[in-house]
Amino acid sequence: MKKHPRLFLGLLAGLVAITANTLVLKAAPLLPVNAESGGLLKLALLHTTPLLPAGLLPVVQAAGFKLLFHYLTGLGMVGLYVLVFEPRLPGKGWVKGGLFSLLPWAINGLVVLPLLGQGVAGVHALTAGGIAYFFVANAVFGLVLGGVYAYLRQRQTAGAGA
């Protein structure tokens, strides 16, 4: 990863951020809050299930596949953050990440959930608390991503100067 140290550091920061986001989303029923989770996979399955071989359907509906899909989608967002947004956003790392977190939240709330028939931000399926909780879960992702990524970059720079 010497050729692409930013991507490697982004991957590390992203794994921490996605895990934090996952834990927040998984904790929602404990509160109890119904916060949307897995909307993109639901949307993908809505359009691909009729095309899937019957034996593959249980695989894509399994909890492990859903978690893998969540991490892969998150890593896509991490790549977008590291390569496109982070260099252009103002402020310290956590501020950049917080600003960036608005993008996945907006994609979900303005595109995915409406396409699932749940309305903008899920107003037809979620309570106000659920909508707010999902916003917080996305903010946790962004804040952790931005903060950890900035910390790792700072450490890398300090190590290179030594």
Rank of each mutant, 00 (worst) to 15 (best):
M1D: 07
M1L: 06
K3Q: 12
K3C: 04
H4Q: 13
P5S: 11
P5I: 07
R6Y: 11
L11C: 07
L11N: 03
L11I: 08
L11W: 11
L12F: 11
L12R: 07
G14Q: 08
G14Y: 06
L15N: 14
V16S: 12
I18E: 09
N21D: 14
T22D: 15
T22M: 08
L23K: 11
V24K: 04
V24P: 05
V24C: 06
L25G: 04
K26S: 09
L30S: 03
L31R: 00
L31G: 00
P32R: 01
V33E: 00
N34W: 00
A35K: 01
E36R: 04
S37Y: 11
G38P: 10
G38W: 07
G38E: 08
L45F: 05
L46A: 08
H47F: 14
H47R: 07
T48A: 12
T49C: 01
P50N: 08
L51C: 04
L51G: 02
G55A: 13
G55K: 02
L56A: 14
L56Q: 05
L56C: 03
A62T: 01
A63T: 05
A63E: 06
K66N: 05
L67R: 00
L68Y: 03
L68S: 05
F69E: 01
L72F: 13
L72Y: 09
T73R: 04
L75E: 14
L75I: 15
L75W: 13
G76K: 10
G76F: 12
G76Q: 10
M77Q: 09
M77W: 14
G79Y: 12
L80W: 11
L80D: 07
V82A: 05
L83F: 05
V84Y: 13
P87A: 14
L89P: 02
P90Y: 03
K92Y: 04
W94N: 01
V95Q: 13
V95K: 09
G97Y: 03
G97K: 01
G98V: 03
F100P: 05
S101F: 09
P104M: 11
I107M: 15
I107H: 07
G109N: 10
L110E: 07
P114L: 08
G117S: 04
G119T: 00
V120A: 06
V120W: 12
G122L: 05
V123C: 08
V123S: 09
A125K: 04
A125W: 03
L126I: 03
L126F: 12
T127H: 07
A128F: 06
I131K: 10
A132Y: 07
A132S: 10
Y133F: 13
F134H: 12
F134D: 15
F134S: 15
F135K: 06
A137V: 10
A139S: 11
V140T: 13
V140W: 11
V140G: 11
V140I: 14
G142P: 13
L143I: 15
L145V: 13
G147K: 09
V148C: 12
Y149G: 07
Y149D: 10
A150W: 02
Y151N: 01
Y151P: 00
Y151S: 08
Y151K: 08
R153D: 00
R153L: 04
T157W: 06
T157N: 08
T157A: 15
T157H: 09
A158D: 12
G161Y: 04
G161R: 10
